[in-house]
Design a binder for these strands. Structure first.
Length: 565
RNA sequence: UGGGGUAUAGCCAAGCGGUAAGGCAGCGGGUUUUGAUCUCGCCAUGCGCAGGUUCGAAUCCUGCUACCCCAGCCA
């Protein structure tokens, strides 16, 4: 079932416990069948990933199966653009629905027939109250509703109108089919809910075959039952709908009755996980697209360089409960770092170059240094050769005038190591007319080749560098969190857009890379030493490669720097 | 007394009458040619609050409090 998922036994949670108990008790002949039921009206995000992992993994654990079913009962919002992206994303996350790709739309005939039977059984009726009247009759949260004047419409009349609704005789909104339950129920969902409405709209799958469409509450439970789902897992807001889910299945002739179990949806701080809000970010150009690397969408995370293994690990680490949670973005980033670290080749790249001239290095000469791709002796990723010459680039941040003692990097008169190369000492600082440091004059110690001093003297700092003559010119996009505050949508008075982080994308268009990166490929992940993990972006062209920063390295210097003020 | 839910550390989360797992974050030490990684140690006399039952309560009982969801012909 879940081919790329490890068999490592996951931590117990209440749903796994319930299902285990059902299996042990022989319920459903010991079968476990789940489903992931997205509405194809947007792209999948990290919250969906939680549900996907839960459903596919739990089915896999019990040798069951998990269906992918599109809950496509609202033609006006749905599109094949979304059914395509959803399938791609679920597959990329590492899951396989096998033969079980389903659409609620494929059940429209069956659903219609069941509705006719409900009418014949006097359990549903055609109502012609306007939406405004409907609201009045529904009552309020604290006051009961009252019966529709059409509630006792003769069965034959309802059947006749329903048939003509289907035939397209009426305008949108003129009639609806309602389940006859209880207008005084304290649960508003049970106050004669609408189960069919007229929509003269083209459906992405059934075209113009239908002009009446069933509602979610009526469709979902029957779709589950038709597919033999045993456990229907959904989020907390559907808890109030469970009595209706059960009512429908108890009042039609069907021999399967899945159990709906609710769990809390994922909330991730510094981000929003609402399709509506994500859609707004795209439509109003606050981000480039659904797969903008700053988006918490599956496609955005994929482009950013997050491995699927990291997302699965994250989903397993956050747990499944009914508690309202707020997961820290830091945990996701930790999962990403842990997944990438052992497999990422280390290379050197300078994002904001500062020129360094080694004054005692012979002009016109250069040499090749052999540098391992991974520092851990237990991880053999091979090595590459890196050119070294008289002119180099180092990171602007690695030089400071009047540096405090805790600053271990380069400053005038100080000696540092260039990784895998030599010790250098800064002798002279050259500035432009604006007083900005534009070049450093340094000397190197030829006796420290490889980065070791024979006399045993130590340096505190090791810097990454790139040979100027051999550097690749590239664009690097450094991403940061999309929002400035932990809870961008907490305040209903203030738009979440007010909290967008203006620095969520920083473009380094003059970055310098060591030449080995010329053969970089999409889907490969690299660590730019001391900077973070990066990957080639799909915007790259042969003459202008573009790299994304997937995630930074943990940075304890940043913390010290902050404390120093 | 509308209905339905949820409360265990800064953030997650186990626990199901026998004396508070684990992860993230944080703090301190060690290793280190990435201020990375790795590694060792510390981190709830306390489980929303108040009573009660019990030899023993996060777990059982009673009463409170706080927060979330529901009045779409959305899902």
């Amino acid at each position: 079932m879940c081919t790329t998922v490890s068999k490592k036994k996951p931590a117990p949670h209440f749903i796994r416990n319930m299902i285990t108990a059902d299996v042990n008790a022989g319920k459903n002949q010991g079968q476990v069948v789940t489903r992931f039921p997205p509405e194809p009206n947007g792209y999948l995000h990290i919250g969906h990933a939680k549900s996907i992992c839960l459903n596919f993994q739990i089915a896999g654990e019990f040798d069951g199966r998990c269906h992918l079913r599109f809950d496509d009962t609202n033609p006006e919002k749905e599109d094949t653009e979304y059914t395509d992206s959803i399938q791609e994303d679920v597959r990329w996350l590492g899951f396989d629905w096998g033969e079980h790709l389903h659409h609620a739309a494929d059940y429209f005939d069956t659903l219609y027939n069941y509705a006719c039977q409900l009418i014949k059984d006097s359990k549903a009726y055609i109502c012609e109250l306007t939406p405004e009247q409907m609201r009045e009759y529904r009552g309020t949260l604290k006051a009961p509703g009252k019966n529709s004047p059409y509630r006792e419409r003769p069965i034959e009349d309802s059947l006749d109108i329903f048939t003509r609704m289907k035939a397209g005789e009426f305008e949108d909104g003129t009639y609806v089919l309602r389940a006859k339950i209880d207008m005084s129920s304290p649960n508003i969902n049970m106050r004669d809910p609408i189960i069919y409405r007229i929509r003269h709209a083209e459906h992405h799958r059934t075209g113009n075959d239908w002009c009446i469409y069933p509602t979610y509450d009526y469709t979902h439970c029957i779709s589950d039952a038709l597919e033999g789902i045993t456990h229907s897992l959904c989020t907390l807001e559907f808890e109030d709908h469970r009595p209706l889910y059960d009512w429908v299945l108890n009042n039609i002739d069907i021999d399967c009755h899945p159990q709906q179990i609710e769990f809390s949806r994922l909330a991730l701080n510094f981000t929003v996980t609402s399709k509506r809000k994500l859609n707004q970010l795209v439509q109003e150009d606050f981000v480039d697209s659904w797969n903008d690397p700053r988006m918490p969408t599956v496609s955005g995370m994929r482009r950013r360089g997050y491995p699927a293994t990291a997302i699965r690990d994250f989903c397993n680490r956050i747990g499944i409960t009914k508690k309202y949670n707020n997961i820290s973005l830091g945990l996701l980033e930790t999962c990403v770092r842990e997944a990438i670290d052992p497999e990422a080749r280390r290379v050197m790249a300078v994002l904001k170059p500062l020129k360094v001239v080694i004054t005692n290095y012979p002009e016109g000469e250069s040499e090749q240094l052999d540098c391992p791709y991974h520092p851990d002796k237990d991880i053999d990723l091979g090595s590459r050769s890196v050119p070294f010459g008289r002119e180099l680039y180092i990171e602007q941040d690695d030089f400071m005038e009047n540096a405090p003692s805790k600053f271990f990097r380069l400053s005038e008169g100080r000696e540092v190591r260039l990784r895998y190369a030599y010790y250098i000492t800064c002798n002279e600082v050259i500035k432009n007319d604006a007083g900005e440091v534009i070049e450093l004059r340094c000397t190197y110690d030829p006796e420290t080749k490889g980065g070791w001093a024979k006399d045993g003297r130590k340096v505190k700092g090791t810097l990454h560098w790139v040979s100027a003559a051999d550097a690749l010119d590239v664009e690097v996009r450094v991403y940061d969190r999309l929002f400035k505050v932990p809870h961008p949508d907490a305040d209903k008075e203030v738009s979440f857009l007010e909290h967008l982080n203006p620095d969520s994308l920083q473009i380094c268009d003059n970055a310098k890379l060591e030449p080995s990166l010329a053969s970089a490929k999409i889907d490969e992940r690299y660590q730019f030493e001391r900077l973070g993990y990066f990957c080639l972006d799909t915007d790259s062209s042969t003459d202008k490669p573009v790299f994304n920063r997937t995630v930074s390295l943990r940075d304890s210097w940043a913390k010290i720097e902050k404390e120093l003020g």
